[in-house]
Structure formats: C-alpha cells, structure tokens
Amino acid sequence: MAESTVWWLITGCVIAIELLTGTFYLLMLAIGLAAAALSAHAGLALTAQIGVAAVVGGGAVVAWHRLRPQSSTLRASANHDVNLDIGETVQVEAWHPDGTTTVKYRGAQWTAVHGSGVLPSTGAHRIVEVRGSQLVIEKFEP
C-alpha cells in the first residue's frame, strides 16, 4: 500500500472522529494529514511527510484558535449567537422598590433587573442577558 493511501485513510478516520465528536480542531489536524498525503504524492521522504503534517496541522489549529470569532468567549446567557433574545427591546413602565420590574416580552410577563452600573429608569430598554427566567436590561440608546 502506498504511503499516500495510508495518509488518506488516516485523514478519513480523523474526519469521521471529528463528525462524531464535533471537535473542530480535529478538522484542522485533518488538513495537516491531507497535506502529508499530498507530500507523499510528491515523493517526499517519510520524515518530511510527518513534518508537513505537523507544521500544516499545527499551524491550522493555531490559526483557527486566533482567528475564531471572539463572541464565542461570551457566556451563553449573554451571547446573541446562543440566545436570540439578547439585543431585543422591552418597555419598562415602573420599577419595584427591590430593583426589579415586570415587562411584557414575547406574550408573557418577565421579571427584569437592571444591569450593573445602570440606574433604573422607565422607557425602552435592551436585553443584555437572560438568567433563567429573569432578564437583565439596560437603557436603550438608539
């Protein structure tokens, strides 16, 4: 069996494992393994093929880690990619003495609190976080 065939088989196995686990970094390593298979087709020695796999796969992992969107580092409760309620507006009529308010949102009554460093005021507010069944809101500035 040719060396390139072995590299392609290993690449396929790593991709299959990535599909089962959802670990995107394995896909980056598979790119390195595919590069090693191409270097085997080019006739490079086995040590060079291993070096190509390490440099390309490791480089792809580092590049993905540095270039991935920074919004993924937010907590899920405050990340618009996870919770589509983030950024939506609600209308505050009055605040309760305990620092909470009741707002109507999506056809239901929700308890809301103001974000840290935000003074309670009436009017339009934007949802910045969802904590269980409680909304964290801040004054909406269009």
Results as ranks from 00 to 15, higher is better:
Met1Tyr: 06
Tyr25Gln: 05
Thr102His: 11
Gly87Met: 08
Gly58Tyr: 03
Leu29Asn: 01
Gly43Asp: 06
Ala53Val: 07
Gly115Val: 02
Cys13Ser: 12
Met28Ile: 09
Thr47Val: 15
Arg126Asn: 04
Thr47Ser: 14
Gln70Pro: 10
Lys139Met: 04
Ile127Phe: 01
Ala30Asn: 12
Leu19Ser: 14
Gly12Pro: 05
Ser116Ala: 15
Ala60Asn: 00
Val128Trp: 03
Ala42Phe: 08
Pro97Tyr: 06
Gly107Phe: 01
Met1Trp: 07
Thr11Phe: 04
Ile31Gly: 04
Arg106Gln: 10
Leu27Phe: 09
Leu20Gly: 09
Ser121Pro: 13
Val113Cys: 08
Gln134Gly: 05
Leu29Thr: 06
Ile137Met: 03
Trp64Ser: 08
Thr5Ala: 12
Thr73Trp: 13
Gly57Phe: 01
Pro97Cys: 07
Thr5Leu: 12
Tyr25Asn: 01
Leu119Thr: 14
Thr11Glu: 00
Gly87His: 08
Gly59Phe: 02
Ile50Arg: 04
Glu3Ile: 12
Ser4His: 04
Gln109Leu: 11
Thr111His: 06
Gly123Phe: 01
Leu20Asn: 03
Ala54Tyr: 02
Leu27Ile: 07
Leu38Trp: 01
Gly87Cys: 06
Ala2Asp: 15
Ala42Tyr: 10
Ala54Cys: 09
Ile17Tyr: 12
Asn79Gln: 04
His125Asn: 01
Ile137Ser: 01
Gly59Lys: 02
Leu67Trp: 14
Phe24His: 07
Ala53Asp: 04
Thr21Phe: 04
Glu18Arg: 05
Arg66Glu: 14
Glu18Tyr: 06
Thr102Tyr: 08
Arg68Gly: 04
Val136Trp: 00
Thr47Glu: 15
Glu3Ser: 13
Val62Asn: 05
Gly12Lys: 09
Ala36Tyr: 01
His80Pro: 02
His96Val: 11
Leu19Tyr: 08
Ala2Trp: 15
Met28Thr: 07
Asn79Asp: 11
Glu88Trp: 09
Gly87Ser: 10
Thr111Met: 02
Glu3Met: 14
Lys139Leu: 10
Arg68Phe: 12
Leu67Cys: 11
Gln70Phe: 11
Thr111Ala: 04
Ala124Lys: 15
Val92Thr: 04
Glu3Pro: 11
His96Glu: 12
Ala48Thr: 06
Ile17Glu: 05
Ala76Met: 15
Thr101Glu: 00
Val103Glu: 06
Ser116Gln: 13
Phe24Val: 10
Ile31Arg: 01
Gly107Asn: 08
Thr100Gly: 07
Gln49Trp: 03
Thr89Met: 08
Thr101His: 05
Ser71His: 12
Ser39Tyr: 00
Thr47Asp: 13
Gly107Val: 06
Ala112Asp: 10
Ala112Phe: 11
Ala108Thr: 13
Ser133Phe: 10
Ser4Trp: 09
Asn83Pro: 07
Val61Trp: 03
Thr111Tyr: 06
Leu27Gln: 08
Ala45Glu: 13
Ala54Asn: 07
Thr23Ile: 10
Ala76Asn: 13
Gln70Glu: 14
His125Val: 02
Gln91Asn: 15
Met28Tyr: 05
Leu67Ala: 14
Ala30Ser: 14
Leu27Pro: 03
Val82Ala: 11
Pro69Thr: 12
Ala45Tyr: 12
Thr122Pro: 09
